[in-house]
Amino acid sequence: MNATTLVNGVLEGGLYALVALGLSLVFGVLRLINLAHGVLVIGAAYAALELFELFRLGPFAALPIVIVVAAMFGFLLQRLMLTNLLLKGPEAGIVGTFGLAVLGEAAFAAAFTSNGVSLQSSLATSSFKIGGVTLEMVLVTACAIAIACAGGLQFGLKRTRAGSVLRAAAKDPSTAELMGINVRLVFALTVALAAALAAVGGVLYGVSTGFEPTSDTSLLLIAVAVVVVGGVGNVTGTLVAGLAMGLVQAISVSVFGGGYADFTVYVLFFVVLIARPKGLFGQGAL
């Protein structure tokens, strides 16, 4: 086990955190496990691929467009679909978002075939060295963006008016409604924000590795693990849990072999859930 392995493990964790942030937000605010979150992530990667094929836009030039499209999609999704489901109870939410995930996978397979693809960028293949440690450029970028997003989100939730409105709506929707907060609008904006975060994660994921229509499942599972370990709705917790997950995975792979990458993560997930259902770092801001 050398320093490069550990450092890149942590950086990969940054990518996990980035993918998990949106899921955590929706779980925390809407009390909804969005099983379609992985589809939002992969969808963004496919959108970037399409923009490349249509207009020769590189992944990072496409990113702003993808973010806007994802946010709009998230907003409409909440408005037209999720609001109605949430009123019917938690099962409806799980089943409905699962239905969306199935539809998403079908749509990707129909539009892009089921072959593995990836986003090509010079960032994916470059690296730099600090004191003998080689850092993957794309992972450094992902990690930096994850920290920036988590920081911005934390600041926004705690220090801005919009943030306190959001927290009020999350804590007690009916009281918030009575106090003149448009809860439905707040919820829709939350899903839009979560989709935008998912889009950032998706494009970076697509650049750093390959993906296929069914890649959403493993992304969703790791994101759920990160969210639960970090504490639902706890933005800093999610970030720290993501980084920790990457580190733990790198260590277990070096010590026990590649087969144990999943094992350690999921055992950790189970143990934390049993011992501390609120996550290692508590419920957090929401």
Partner: peptide
């Protein structure tokens, strides 16, 4: 010698080790 479950897409620890 590096083995991993089929859905794995992150290999940096293996690559670092092989390179070293």
């Amino acid at each position: 010698t590096y083995t991993f479950p089929p859905p794995t897409t992150t290999f940096s620890s293996f690559i670092t080790s092989a390179k070293a």
